[in-house]
Amino acid sequence: MSSNAKGPLVKRHRLSTRVWHWTNMVAIFLLIGSGATIFNAHPRLYWGEYGANFDPAWLVIDDRQSATGPRGFVNIGGAEFDTTGVLGVFEKGGETRMRAFPHWVTIPAEYSLSAGRRYHLLGAWIFGVAGFVYFFWSLFNRHIQRDLIPRKWQLTPACVRADIKNHIKLNFIHSGTEKYSLLQKLSYAGVILVILPVLVATGLTMSPNMNAAWPWLLDIFGGRQSARSLHFIAAFLLIAFIFVHLILVVLAGPYNEIRSMITGKLRLPAGDGR
């Protein structure tokens, strides 16, 4: 791996991709933090149309008293995990707090459902409008067809094997006809074409006014509480993507990578010129 050795500086990312990427990052940051606040108002998830305290929940984050003080726990489908200190029960400024997500992930830090909802709506507007414009612009300039959807030849077993091997060897940056390798394409397409649209659609399915106008939203996702669960799961998958994404940016050379998403230009490794 020689990503720091000087090869040629090539054009990698379009202006539209760069502008959308950073706008979207701000929106996602707002959405995740304020989403955690909103979840804290009722930290239980259900399947179906309805679900409240007396109904069975598939996911619960809560606290209960014990001989040694309050304990936080997460219960997923009956399996329970003690999460004291992180989820359910945590410390803030020397005080013990009992909420699902701690102050260091929620926006705002001090619990306020109404403020959380306002930040969430702000994030949702930025995210929705930017995503809508980016999606259609990327169809128009063929970014989706060319750079995100894998080519047939990339799916041949030999190429799949080679790409996996390159990733294991932490060898990320290549020249060639394609901007992204197969695994990159699959994860970016999965985020842009599946996870982000599911987040928008399940978000709208939680709106009682949208439910009245477009009741098929409820049918697609199996009811309002199912939509709420799927919204949470999609957000969780997005966070998992972001984790891996950041690790890979660091491994591939953060200076070169982040610059490429700002100026558009990526430095190829020496001896890897076109």
């Binding site: 108002a41 009722h42 459902l113 009682p208 309002r224 509480q225 709420r228």
Partner: peptide, 12 residues
């Protein structure tokens, strides 16, 4: 009808 609380729960 379904009643949706701002907190997130629903009841029919």
């Amino acid at each position: 009808t379904r009643h949706d609380c701002v907190e997130g729960w629903s009841a029919i």
